[in-house]
Design a protein around this nucleic acid. Structure first.
Lengths: 81, 81
DNA sequence: CCACATTTGTCCGTATGTATC
DNA sequence: AGATACATACGGACAAATGTG
């Protein structure tokens, strides 16, 4: 059983959404409060997701404004490469 | 306001230590408890550091064993490149 | 095999600060 | 000024893997 942790699963889902074109560069993610409800986790878990996605430069966080998708061409790669 | 947050500063210091050769691939980092004391932060902050370093594949975490430095050639790059 | 200590892993709730609208 | 939203940090609870005796 993998039992993937929430913060891994959620960040992977966001990456998949970018890959699928549901998010485009510059798009703003839902607010932390909304993501908490959508995934039924605490804000601390969402913050973990953001730290992880920011580390690979998949998002940019702007205090007071929101969290935005970056240009995937700089970070997106196929699985297993 | 902090010029640099703890979890960014600490992870950057670890990366610098790798760059300086103080840590080599396969080396085990001090335990979470020791890092907490060394940097005078909580374990949650160290966990943030680990999530960040793991996202860029600078470390690998092994539950019950420890946290280990990976081969820097796969992730280490000069600042600004 | 079992018991135990150690260590890391995940998640939560909260407090406080700062930036933006 | 107030509301909204993100940012950082803490402390604790419990789980899971490992190593030792």
């Amino acid at each position: 059983m993998p039992a993937t942790p929430d913060y891994i699963r959620i960040s992977d889902e966001i990456i998949s959404a970018v890959r699928a074109g549901k998010y485009k560069p510059g798009d703003k993610l839902p607010s932390i409060a909304e993501l908490c409800q959508e995934y039924n986790v605490s804000s601390s878990t969402i913050q973990l997701v953001f730290v992880r996605l920011e580390a690979i430069e998949a998002i940019r966080r702007h205090q007071g404004k929101g969290v935005f998708i970056t240009d995937p061409s700089t970070w997106l790669r196929k699985p297993g490469t």
